[in-house]
Simulated scan of single mutants.
Amino acid sequence: MAKKVVSLLLASHPGPTVVVTVIAVGLGIGLGYPPGRLVLLALAILFGQLSIGWSNDWLDAARDRAVERTDKPAARGDVSVTTVRAAAFIALAVGLVLTLPLGIAALVVHAIAIASGWAYNLGLKSTAYSWVPFAVAFGLLPAIATLGQEQPAWPQWWVYAAGALLGVAAHVTNVLPDLEDDARTGIRGLPHRLGARPSGLLAFSALALATLLITFGPGLPVRPVLLVGLVIGLAAAITGVVLLLRRSPTRLLMQLIMTCAIVDVVMLALAGQSVTV
């Protein structure tokens, strides 16, 4: 029983699930959430992400078996596809129910973000618009936090833009290691059409633009800590571009992309109430 529970958790894409949840928690802390409300926000985002991760493994089980993905529990048979599918729908319902106490606006925005993730899994991943669900979901993530406050507020426009750019970078980061396997099973999203090197350049460019927006967004006071983040983020992005132009994409490039993304998220959290209208 314990083994199946572990397998089910591994089928949820725990890495991205935890990262997005931590991002939401960081935003909540920056906005001054009280502890109880912060826990509610964290659980709501967590279950929403679990539903997206499980729906991905459920829908991709046959494709993962075809390319012998040994890291996929459903493809290996460690947990049944039926169980993963049921978990996806249960997590979806729980995530939305937990969002309701944060307010109707937060609920609607969270529902749209989750729907974007499901739309990707259901077929958009195979089109030139594969980046759209990530841009929408990441662009709306800060709005879930700002609208979930006791005094709801909409984010400023540049917050949506920065989040969307981070989403595009996350999409590319997620796809690059699997380009060959995806090609074997007919997946041709935007990174597959562009190729590894152009996709890497797209990711670093998106992260650099997001970093600039978070540093110099209208209404943001000039803060030394944000300038430090700008220097770190741009240095990582420039290093990544130089390496990308000199050699084939490697795991080091993905680590640099994640470094840029983490810096951007920390900067956004540190901006606090300055991100709201």
Rank of each mutant, 00 (worst) to 15 (best):
V20C: 01
T21H: 02
T21C: 01
T21Q: 01
T21A: 02
T21Y: 02
V22D: 04
I23P: 01
I23Y: 04
I23S: 08
I23K: 03
I23N: 03
A24D: 02
A24Q: 01
V25I: 15
V25L: 09
V25H: 05
G26K: 05
G26S: 07
G26M: 07
G26L: 11
G28R: 05
G28S: 10
G28A: 10
I29N: 09
I29W: 12
I29R: 13
I29P: 06
G30I: 04
G30N: 05
G30M: 03
L31R: 14
L31Q: 10
L31M: 10
G32E: 01
G32C: 10
G32R: 14
G32N: 11
Y33S: 08
Y33A: 11
Y33M: 08
Y33K: 13
P34D: 13
P34Q: 14
P34W: 13
P34H: 14
P34S: 15
P35M: 15
P35E: 15
G36I: 12
G36K: 15
G36S: 14
G36R: 15
R37T: 13
R37N: 13
R37S: 14
L38I: 11
L38V: 14
V39W: 01
V39I: 11
V39C: 03
L40Q: 08
L40W: 00
L41N: 03
L41V: 04
L41I: 04
L41D: 05
A42S: 09
A42E: 03
A42F: 00
L43Y: 00
L43R: 00
L43P: 01
A44T: 03
A44K: 00
A44F: 00
I45Y: 04
L46T: 05
L46W: 10
F47G: 06
F47M: 14
F47T: 09
G48R: 06
G48K: 06
Q49H: 14
Q49F: 08
Q49C: 08
Q49M: 12
Q49R: 09
L50N: 05
L50M: 14
I52G: 09
I52A: 11
I52F: 11
G53S: 14
G53T: 11
W54M: 13
W54S: 12
W54F: 15
S55D: 06
S55V: 05
S55E: 05
S55H: 06
S55R: 09
N56A: 10
D57R: 14
D57P: 13
D57Y: 09
W58V: 12
L59M: 12
L59N: 06
L59K: 08
D60I: 09
D60R: 11
D60Y: 06
A61V: 07
A62E: 13
A62K: 00
R63E: 14
R63L: 11
R63I: 07
D64C: 00
D64S: 01
D64H: 00
D64G: 00
R65K: 05
R65F: 01
R65A: 10
R65G: 02
